[in-house]
Amino acid sequence: MRLVLPIALSCLSLAMTGCNRPPELEAAITEEARAAPAPKLTDIRMALAPAETIRLDEAEQARMAARGAALQDRAKAATGPVISAAEAQDAQERAARLRQARAAQVAEGH
């Protein structure tokens, strides 16, 4: 029974700490943001509707196709070699020279 009061006070103090606004967050909000109007809410039924029920006009279809083609081009460019064949050959030759030099050092006892 003696533990009830300390436990209740602990729970109350924990609950009270969640009610304040941290000053770091308050300071991060600009005056412009405070004065801004509330965001306009839109109907999300279109986003939640099955894809086959959504119809796009021709301009939007063309825009989406162009965007898809551009993304595919970017993907192709990203999958290509990072360095040229000549740079790769040069790097392999330098690595071989470094391995030989290290083997020579090990053989000398360094």
Rank of each mutant, 00 (worst) to 15 (best):
A33Q: 15
S84R: 08
L5D: 02
P39K: 12
A75H: 08
I7A: 15
R45C: 00
A62P: 03
I54V: 15
I54P: 00
L14Y: 10
R34Q: 13
A103C: 00
A62G: 04
E87D: 14
Q92R: 14
R97G: 02
P22H: 11
L5K: 12
L25T: 00
D43M: 10
A103F: 07
A47H: 11
A15K: 03
Q100H: 07
P6F: 08
E108Y: 04
G109N: 06
G80K: 06
N20V: 04
C19K: 05
A96I: 01
H110F: 09
A49P: 00
A47V: 03
E26D: 13
R21Y: 05
Q72D: 14
D57V: 01
D73G: 05
M1A: 11
A49E: 11
A28R: 12
L71E: 14
L14M: 14
A96N: 07
A36N: 09
A95Y: 08
A104T: 04
A59H: 06
A107W: 09
A78C: 01
L48W: 10
M1V: 01
A59C: 01
R74E: 14
V106S: 05
C11L: 15
A15M: 12
R94F: 03
A36H: 09
A47Y: 14
R21L: 07
E108R: 11
M64G: 00
K40N: 09
D90Y: 09
D43A: 08
A96K: 09
T17C: 08
L41D: 11
S84W: 05
L9Y: 11
V82Y: 11
K40C: 02
R21A: 10
A69E: 12
Q89R: 12
P39V: 04
E26Y: 01
S84D: 09
L48F: 03
R2S: 01
A104D: 15
I54C: 02
E26S: 11
Q105I: 00
M46A: 13
A36P: 07
S13E: 05
Q72E: 15
I29Y: 06
I29G: 01
A103R: 12
